[in-house]
Design a protein around this nucleic acid. Structure first.
Lengths: 213, 213
DNA sequence: ACCGTAACGACACTGAGTGACAAAAATCAA
DNA sequence: TTGATTTTTGTCACTCAGTGTCGTTACGGT
């Protein structure tokens, strides 16, 4: 149904020698995905997403436009550079859930546990979510990345229910869970009065209760 | 938070004189949004979305490339030409719900009632959902249109709960409802063994029950 | 010094989307 | 019939995202 996640990401040679120039072979990198991300995040918030060209970003990073596209397959992929890692964490956390725990409760606890951010990351996270929520081009690019996140949840639900992940209920659980989390993210960004985890817990508790009351 | 729905749609002069060339003033249209939609749907399924250029579509419709963009603001908007009308129906149906009906039950009944398609429309609906589900560029464009759909549900939930539509729970309800419906749509397209409404009802019943069991 | 390797830059190209403006094709009034 | 008005269309020129190709640069190893 949906295409497999594109393997292309990170740098020219995917996962080459972690960081550092230590003991590699050819010409060293002119920049890094992380550096491009930081530069872009600044330019996007200053001038706006559409008003920032790839040329602008590449120029500030000290590389050519062509090289930019060797680090990110599109301009909007920059903001998702980190997000994808969370999916890995999510799957790992699901694997550690005790066998007979209630499904929706387990999902809530896992999702909340994965979303503990240190105070030093909050500012950047806010900026990122803010951009994703306000720029249409970025909202559009979200779908692909959400798919992987949803599937992690669907896979867990399917396994516990003894069904396939593409059956109606596991599919609905995966997607509804993300939907509730996105609501939590948005409200958290708008009113910064509490921890993100508080909103996530509230949204997922309501989801698990069928939004009764 | 999210931009207001772009008003641009349909033809050059939005909602001019319905159809027909009856009693208008200037030069008559060379085509219609519906004609472009039919042509595009055919080309997309034959050659694929990415392999079909706007030039191809405009050419078959007998108009210039520039004129195409006077009917649709982008290539991927074509497939959503109809979908947006459902949002209007959705809001109208919500207005007819009895005052003290249970919220999630009402949502389920309204959504199901709006999604009754005649047998003559099923083939086209299938083709459309199939494309939307398989082409990344179309999945991306979905977000904007889903927003309006979700907000219709959120507004209803918020009103019944006496909250604002951008509060956590109404937001979560709106988005989770769409998430469950999308699951139903996808499974329905894949296995065509029952009516669409059956899948929608099942998914929304499960959502309203908190996916228990 | 030389070779292999990996990243980079330069160039050319397709295609989406936009702005500006003149030309076409209709209606309406004289 | 002619001319003014109105609406849509076509043409042209442009920006920018994204891709393919190929030569070049800068390293490490021998």
């Amino acid at each position: 149904m949906q295409a497999v996640n594109t393997p292309r990401r990170a740098g020219p040679a995917a996962v080459p020698f972690a960081a550092g120039t230590g003991g590699r072979r050819g010409r060293p990198r002119g920049t890094s995905a992380r550096e491009i991300e930081v530069i872009s995040l600044r330019l996007f918030t200053e001038r706006g997403f559409d008003e920032t060209t790839v040329e602008d970003i590449a120029s500030e990073a000290g590389v050519s436009r062509r090289t930019f596209f060797r680090y990110f397959e599109s301009k909007s992929e920059i903001l998702w550079y980190q997000f994808d890692d969370e999916v890995t964490q999510l799957r790992a956390a699901f694997d550690r859930v005790p066998a007979r725990a209630d499904v929706m409760t387990a999902i809530r606890e896992v999702v909340v546990s994965v979303n503990h951010y240190g105070p030093e990351d909050v500012a950047e996270l806010r900026a990122r979510i803010n951009l994703i929520g306000s720029v249409p081009a970025l909202q559009a690019s979200a779908t692909q990345h959400y798919d992987a996140w949803e599937r992690a949840v669907s896979d867990f639900a399917a396994q516990r229910r003894g069904e396939a992940a593409d059956e109606l209920i596991p599919l609905a659980i995966g997607r509804s869970t993300l939907a509730a989390c996105r609501a939590a993210f948005d409200v958290w960004v708008r009113r910064g009065d509490a921890e993100l985890t508080v909103y996530l817990d509230a949204a997922l508790t309501a989801l698990g209760g069928g939004f009764a009351g």
